[in-house]
Simulated scan of single mutants.
Amino acid sequence: MSLLEKATFPCTEVTLEKAEAKFYVVSRNKLILMSVLLSGFYLPYWHYRNWKAYRTATGEKVWPLIRAFLNIFFVYSLATKIQRQLNSAGRQYEWHPRLLALVIMVVGIFGNCIVYLPISVKAYLPIALFLMVFSTLCLLRFQAAINHLEGDPEGRQNSRITMANGAWILLGCVVWFFVIYAMLLLSGYVSIR
């Protein structure tokens, strides 16, 4: 027996499982596509998936469905939990979570109150589009922090469009068609004859 054979120790097979993700990972392009084409309906789903992943990973008693539907009131809490996880994992990331959460809250409240403002019908669609683009940009900052925390900065593990995503996108496009048509009809650009 050689010296090398004496120094080798018997090994057993060990399987390493990936740690449970604490938050929902998604790629930048998929997030933009889903946010825009689902005309804002993706946001509650995104919140639900984040709170569900957080509850599963930490065991903390949170109700993901309630937090998804009332996301304006829980976005600040989500931001602080993401930042705490970044700090405890030793992953530095510059994203100003509290300010970003506050901006998302204000945009969300303003978006819900826009129908009560005394503005012309022609102004609703451009304002709504601006708010949607602005909130998507804010959401991208959130997602970049989450992806950084989970060790997948590009969000590759959730970058493909699934059949379910395609069905939701189709439904979202139908909603967009009717919203734009209604706005054009109300503003007098299109008439029913």
Rank of each mutant, 00 (worst) to 15 (best):
E17F: 14
E150K: 03
Y181R: 04
F178Y: 10
G108E: 02
V14W: 06
K18S: 15
I114G: 09
M183G: 13
H96I: 01
N147A: 12
Q85T: 10
A19C: 07
K81C: 04
R84C: 10
F74P: 02
R28A: 09
R67F: 04
E94Y: 08
L129N: 15
F74N: 01
F134N: 03
L117Q: 09
K52L: 11
L33V: 15
S191V: 15
A53W: 01
M132L: 14
V36C: 12
L184P: 00
M105A: 09
P44Y: 05
W46F: 13
S35I: 12
N29D: 09
R98K: 13
Q85H: 13
Y76C: 00
L171F: 15
L100Q: 02
V133A: 14
A21P: 14
M34H: 04
V115C: 06
A68L: 08
F74M: 03
H47W: 01
V174S: 12
G90T: 12
V103R: 01
Y189Q: 13
E20S: 14
L185T: 09
L70D: 00
R67Y: 06
R28H: 13
V107K: 02
P118H: 07
L33N: 11
G111F: 00
I161W: 09
L149I: 03
E94M: 06
V174F: 11
R84Q: 14
Q85V: 00
Y124D: 05
Q143F: 06
L31F: 03
Y42F: 15
T8Y: 04
W176L: 12
A182V: 01
Y181Q: 03
Y48E: 03
L37S: 05
W63V: 08
R160E: 12
L185K: 07
A164P: 00
I32R: 09
I109Y: 07
V62W: 01
Y24D: 02
